[in-house]
Amino acid sequence: MDWHVLQLVLWLIAGIVSFYFSIGNARVWTSIAVGFGLIVIGELLPQAIPYLPGVGVPRIEAMSYIVGTISILVMSHGFQEYYVFSRTLEFEGNKGMVYLSTIGVIAASVVFVFVNPLPDKRTLDIIRVVENTNWVFLSLINIDLIRKIYANIKDSPISKGFIAFIVVFLFIFLWRGSELYIQVYHFTDPEVGMAFPFRFQLSQICSEVGNFLAGVSVGGTFLYLARLLR
């Protein structure tokens, strides 16, 4: 099986599992699950571009990167909410608002992309860099936040699920960090790649392996959470 196809299958499973999880569980999980679920759109959209007739391809690609950015923002917001809950034991809001807000932000992004000039390669590269930067730094912040959440709810039934999330974000950091590295140092250019073959190879491997492991761990984590929250 093709490596990318396997990655897509894994992300598809992870996305479905996390969306399903967001429906059946407490409100506090909605943002986190929706955030992870959105990754699948960010991952699938670029692959689906050739099969989407009548739509300006660069705009679809731009949207996939933006949805990717929205996904890490939404899940980080979810972890922040959980952290606040674990500290104050207070929790507000409802699931509907999370879904509506996320759809609203995505819709606003679509409007933004369509009212602006058709993105060229440079624009797309920048949007991609912005997306990966968000992922890299928010992954690190989330790892610290999840560590604190774990400390607060250490002996609860769900606590081990948060250790799994730390593992997830470590893989995501590896995946998105190596992609950011590739973009920043322009390893997408074969000439640069040939000039630094080891770095090029290593960053490519890290990106692919990170992507694969992140996909596996996200799906696995939500299945594990579902088991813990039976």
Partner: peptide, 12 residues
């Protein structure tokens, strides 16, 4: 019951 759902499943 509602608050506990944030850290445990329905059976617990």
């Amino acid at each position: 019951g509602q608050a506990a759902k944030l850290v445990a499943g329905p059976s617990t």
